[in-house]
Amino acid sequence: MAAITLNVNGSDHQVAPSDGEMLLYVLRERLNLTGTKYGCGEGQCGACTVLIDGHPRRSCRTNVSAAIGHKITTIEGLEQNGKLHPVQQAFIDEEAFQCSYCTPGMIMSAVGLLASNAKPTQDDIVRGMNGNICRCGTYPRIVAAIQRAAKSGGSR
């Protein structure tokens, strides 16, 4: 594949991926954005979740060519002017993680959820987040964090 331009976290990046390369690989290996994690490689765990034009997407199953011309946001792009995103802050305040390997994907899914639904019910949160796996088992605190972020205007 020829060199392409990807818009990641508000900046354009030139990369020259191989044919069929997944967005996750490009973000981690070519752009050194390692906040986005490999968990299963098949879109089943959610650790690789990023936003594409504001929608949560599994970057391990997104061919990089499908991301050309779209706005990609990773966990590294949420912080603004040194201030964490309300969802990030809510995860800290509710302590919604242990090992935290799933956390970037969780937070990106939550940001995407709140962007489309600023006041989600418990059921909305379950529906929106059920595909993100936390093996340490912090789910109740994740729900609480999303509710807290929603109250504080978490969709920003």
Binding site: I75, E76, I92
Partner: peptide, 13 residues
């Protein structure tokens, strides 16, 4: 918490 929520926490991977 801040390192983990911001994605800055580095794992072996």
């Amino acid at each position: 918490g801040p390192a983990k929520a911001s994605g800055r926490a580095k794992y072996t991977y």
